[in-house]
Amino acid sequence: MLAIFRRDLSAYFNSITVWILTAAYLFVSGLIFTLMVSNFVESSMGGPMSGRTPNIMDELVLGYQWWLGFLMIFLLPMLTMRLLAEEKRIGTLELLFTYPVNEWEIVLAKFFASLLTVLGMLGMSCISLAYISSKTPLDWTLVASGYAGLALMASTLIAIGLWASSLSASQVIAACITYGLAMMLWLMQLLDKFLPEKLTQGFGEDSKGIGSLGIMTHLESFARGNISSHDIVYYLALTLLFLFLTVRVLDSRKWRM
């Protein structure tokens, strides 16, 4: 499993696509960060007169992390689409199946190679925050909590992408399926607004209704620092579900007619 993990990781490092994606991710998030900082500075200048003290964590860091998550929805499908589809297309997957490794090892190796790559990107996005923290103190525990949420959200998106990539030998199809599912999960949170209340109200007292199926909703809890078990379970369950489905797809060659 380690061998496959290392091969996939080095394939990422050798791939121009990955560097372009990373550059694009950092550029766009950096741009957004700059805009947010100037907004924040403007609003804090009017602060004392308007009678409010702006909170940098709420108004800047939270928003920045929301954007980092939101951009991942667009970025990660392009990162994961090749994982299995490409190996299927050139036939190396057939070779891999005749090596003494099982399907879980293949899937987990690829999953972790992607996850580590994405964590690298997220790590680089910290630079903006590190810069700001030299001007004004930040609550780093809260920042870390937000990043933990981002990492979990990334693992969910990667698992979905990996599954989509296992379905066909076409990277384009894989990317389309991942985009479709990721958008759907994102838009879930809007359902609360559009569906009649009866339908959206969940069971129990403080349940959040159907909107809590949205992938960005849970990210917010992390960024605000009030993590509850269902936020963690939401991401982990989706990740495991799609990893499991991927293994089933790879297994299917054994019984498919």
């Binding site: 380690l2 061998a3 290392r6 394939a11 050139i90 036939g91 057939e94 070779l95 005749t98 090596y99």
Partner: peptide
Amino acid sequence: YLPELVPLHPEMTPREFVGFAAAAK
């Protein structure tokens, strides 16, 4: 096993690829 279409990772060198095969096997 050598499949018919000789599947190889084009972005690797023979030494890397054979090394990968050795590790995976």
